[in-house]
Amino acid sequence: MDKNAFIEILRTHRDRVFSYSVYCLRDRDDAEDVTQDAFLRLWRKRDEVDPDRVEAWLIRVAHNLCIDHTRRRRTARNYVARPEMKLAVEQAASAALAAGPDHGLVREQTRTLLLDAMSVLHEETRSAVMMHYFQGMKIEEIARILEKKTSTVKVQIHRARKALRGALELGAECGAVLERETT
């Protein structure tokens, strides 16, 4: 991979790597560090990375860097405890309902409460969820990145969905209420 090819990859994938990092970390500054670091690692390993799998490679590196950041941050900050998180989720859902029949706003609120709820997931589970639903990656690809069995990743995502049940039900309820109001 020469410098021009690297610049092209940087232009093509920077938004996706940055977005993935922002949604995983919920912190733009940390996401900037992760994105910068991931691309710099790509440059330094450019002769070892398969050009056809460069996005998966970048996401794997970003995933590992996000985990490192999360662990460092966990020692520096106090995370919201689960009961408080539940209250925040309910408040977000109420705000969405009070805002009226605006599907865009409901989706935005559902997204916010989902991401908040996801912060209590194990790092690897959260990454698997983000890779599958946000990145659109196949379970088999995620299993390769996380060095797990396909069946393990399926179970991780299933458990994540269970853990996010409260937020998902509120989101679905908001959507259902709006459906009723607009029809």
Binding site: R14, D15, R16, V17, F18, S19, V22, Y23, E32, T35, Q36, R107, T110, R111, L114, V129, M130, Y133, F134, G136, R161, L164, R165, L168, E169, G171, A172, G175
Partner: peptide, 21 residues
């Protein structure tokens, strides 16, 4: 719930990476 999760996360917008990065 699976579809809510899928639709919500799949529709999350790409966030432009700042030029400074």
């Amino acid at each position: 719930r699976e579809r809510t999760l899928r639709d919500t996360l799949a529709s999350m917008p790409l966030i432009p990476c700042p030029d400074r990065v």
